[in-house]
């Protein structure tokens, strides 16, 4: 148990009087892909926003054995990187500038950053072709690739992906799915995935948590959750 990369203990988030997250506890081990699944409005995005310092929370979060700092830029500095829902790209900057800003906190050699840029271009060749183009002129799928690429440029120890395939055409979804698989084969990237699409989550996750109206109600491996009668009835349509 000791030494999980991310340990979340009793985290709650309130928006005014409304409770968006209630006493949520979970952990992510180094090298794992953990998915938080659940319906729209369950609190998945709120959870990731809390972990990246965008939303204040109560409770305790430890990352890489230390208490998580409160400011987003300090959290990014530790390698906990959030690729948000809606992407939050810099619309009037080029693809290249967006990707390079992903490495804003890095203080290692420029050659290392250059290498990661090549890795992102290899993963998404279309971004290499369009690197000079302003991001707001790209399609939704291409923008999602920029968002994932920008997060990778920070060289994350843990990558938090929020609904990476939301609103994308099936062919683009498949492309992003493949990229994620290739990425995991090559690096021991740890991922926390927030996903409404159970098919996508089951395909990529080692373990899953089910979040409903701000509470974690189930936890298990892909196999365990697929066999769970409640999950089957509510989410797998069988």
């Amino acid at each position: 148990m000791a030494g999980a990369l991310l340990e979340v203990e009793g985290v709650s988030v309130h928006y005014g009087k409304a409770c968006a997250l209630h006493d949520v506890s979970f952990r992510v081990e180094e090298g794992e892909v953990v998915a938080i699944i659940g319906p729209n409005g369950a609190g998945k995005t709120t959870l990731l926003n809390a972990l990246s310092g965008l939303v204040p929370y109560r409770g305790r979060v430890r990352f890489a054995g230390r208490d998580l700092p409160k400011q987003p830029h300090e959290i990014v500095g530790l390698g906990l990187i959030h690729c948000p829902e809606g992407r939050s790209l810099f619309p009037y900057m080029s693809v290249l500038d967006n990707l390079l800003l992903g490495a804003y906190r890095r203080r290692d050699e420029p050659a290392e950053i250059e290498r990661d840029l090549e890795m992102v271009f290899e993963l998404f060749p279309r971004l290499k072709e369009r690197q000079r183009q302003p991001v707001h002129t790209l399609s939704g799928g291409e923008q999602q690739m920029v968002a994932i690429g920008r997060a990778l440029m920070a060289r994350p120890r843990l990558l938090m992906l929020d609904e990476p395939t939301l609103g994308l055409a099936p062919i683009v979804r498949a492309h992003i799915s493949q990229a994620l698989e290739r990425l995991r084969e090559r690096t021991r990237l740890t991922v926390l995935l927030a996903e409404q699409n159970t098919e996508f989550a089951f395909r990529h996750a080692d373990r899953l948590y089910l979040l409903e109206t701000g509470r974690l109600v189930r936890e298990g491996t892909v196999h365990e959750l697929k066999e769970d009668p409640y999950v089957q009835k509510a989410y797998l349509g069988s």
């Binding site: 965008l54 990014v76 500095g77 810099f90 009037y92 804003y104 906190r105 920070a154």
Partner: peptide, 23 residues
Amino acid sequence: TPQGKAILALSMERKGAALVGIP
């Protein structure tokens, strides 16, 4: 310069700027 691009980034997208670590 990186500092200048951070200014531009912040003017375009506050949340994105926070998430790449711009203070």
